[in-house]
Design a protein around this nucleic acid. Structure first.
Lengths: 212, 212
DNA sequence: CTTTTATGAATGAAGG
DNA sequence: CCTTCATTCATAAAAG
C-alpha cells in the first residue's frame, strides 16, 4: 500500500527486549527502543496530521464553497516533500523515509560510519529526497552522541511517582515532573486519537501515494 | 510570527477561485463536483486507514510481545473510551526559587557552565524542586541563545518603533537574515486562506469531524 | 474556551 | 568523538 507500511518490520528483530523472569513467569517489560518509539510516534503523527488537514480543508472549503482546483489544493501540497522548500529552511531535514532508513542502519549495529558507507547510504537516500554526505555523516555523529548521552542520563532519575505503569519514556531524558492528572479529550476519530497521542513533531510530510 | 514556509507552490497558483462574474455580479457557485467530493472523501478515508493500520500494527506488535506500557499509550485510548489516561510529555518548569538561582548564576558572567558546574548547580537546585542536569543544561543553552538574539534584534530593527511599548517585542522573528519571502495577504482569496491552513504548521490539534 | 506568548526541548551543523 | 551553537518544534502559561 504505502511505503510506510513496511517500516515497523525492523521491530520484529527487536534487540533490547528485556525479559524479567519472575516467579517462573516471563514478563516482557520493554520491547521498543526509545528511538523506535520515537520513530513510530513521528510516523503516526505525520499521518494523523495529514488526515486532520485534509478534513479541515474539506470543512473550510465546504463552508466557503470557494475552491480552487482540487489538484492544487490537496494533491500537490501533500505530494510535495519537505525538501522542496522554495522559500526557506536552510538546514536539511530528513524526510520520514530517510529517517526510517537511517534509523534502521543505525540500529543494525553496523554503527561504523565509514566513508564508503556514507557514500553508499547517501546514494540510497538521495532517492527519497535531497541529501548530502555531510548530512548523513552529521546525522550519525549526532545520533550516536545523543544515544550515548541518553544512557548516562538514565541514572539521574529521581522522580517518577507515577501510580500507573504507563511511564513510557519516549525521549532522551523525559524527566517528567510531578504533575496533575491531565485533561480528557473526547475522541472523534482514529486520526484524532492518534494525533492526541503523538502530537509532537510533525515537521515535514512524507511522500504519500494516497491511491494504493 | 507564524512562519509558513512549506509548500508555497500552490498558493501562488490559486487564482482560479471559483467566482463567476455574471452580469457584473459575483456569483459563488458550487465548486466541487460530486466526483471531486467523492474523491476527497476517499482520500481522507485512505489517510485514516493508514493511521489505523499503523496503530493496529503497533497493537499487534505489542500483543505479540505482551507489552503493557506502550499498549496503554496507543491502544487503550482506542479501545477503552472510558479511559482518559493519555500520557503526554511533561516538560520541566523551574520553580521561582530555581529560576532566581539560575538567573543569578547566568548574570555572573560565567557564560560557559561546564559539566562540573552543571552537576553542581543541579545538585543545588534539587533542593528546591525536581530538576535534572539536562534541564539545567537546556536552560543555559536557551538563556544564552535568546539573550543573544535579543541583542541582535535590537540592532536589526529598522522599524523604529521607538516608543514605550518595546517590552512586548515578540521573540525575534523574520526580521534579520531569514528573509521569509512571505505571502502577502492583500487579496483575501478564500481558497488562498484554505491553502494556507493546510500548509501551515499548526501547534495544536483541532478536533476532527470526519463525517461531514 | 480560544489565541498568543514564553520557554523547555529536539536536532542539524560547526569547531576542536 | 565531544561540545557548542542556531534554529525550530511543542507546550505551559498568560492574555483575551
Amino acid at each position: 500500500m504505502v511505503n510506510a507500511m513496511e517500516w515497523p518490520k525492523q521491530q520484529q528483530q527487536n534487540q533490547n527486549q528485556q525479559r524479567n523472569v519472575i516467579a517462573g513467569e516471563i514478563m516482557y517489560v520493554k520491547v521498543m527502543t526509545d528511538e523506535q518509539l520515537e520513530t513510530l510516534r513521528k510516523q503516526i503523527a505525520v499521518y494523523a496530521t495529514i488526515c486532520e488537514k485534509l478534513i479541515e480543508m474539506h470543512k473550510t472549503l465546504s463552508a466557503q464553497q470557494d475552491l480552487a482546483g482540487l489538484g492544487s489544493m490537496y494533491c500537490d501540497p501533500l505530494m510535495a516533500s519537505s525538501g522542496h522548500k522554495i522559500t526557506s529552511r536552510q538546514r536539511w531535514t530528513p524526510t520520514s523515509v530517510q529517517l526510517q532508513i537511517l534509523e534502521r542502519i543505525f540500529d543494525q549495529g553496523t554503527g561504523t560510519p565509514s566513508k564508503e558507507k556514507i557514500k553508499e547510504i547517501t546514494a540510497e537516500l538521495s532517492k527519497h529526497g535531497q541529501i548530502s554526505e555531510t548530512n548523513v555523516y552529521n546525522w550519525f555523529q549526532n545520533r550516536r552522541a545523543r544515544s550515548k548521552r541518553k544512557q548516562q542520563n538514565v541514572a539521574a532519575s529521581n522522580n517518577t511517582n507515577t501510580n500507573t505503569e504507563s511511564e513510557v519514556e519516549t525521549e532522551v531524558d523525559s524527566k517528567d515532573k510531578k504533575t496533575k492528572p491531565e485533561e480528557f479529550q473526547s475522541q472523534q476519530s482514529l486520526a484524532n486519537v492518534a494525533a492526541q497521542n503523538v502530537c509532537f513533531h510533525n515537521r515535514d510530510l512524507p511522500y504519500l501515494n494516497p491511491e494504493s
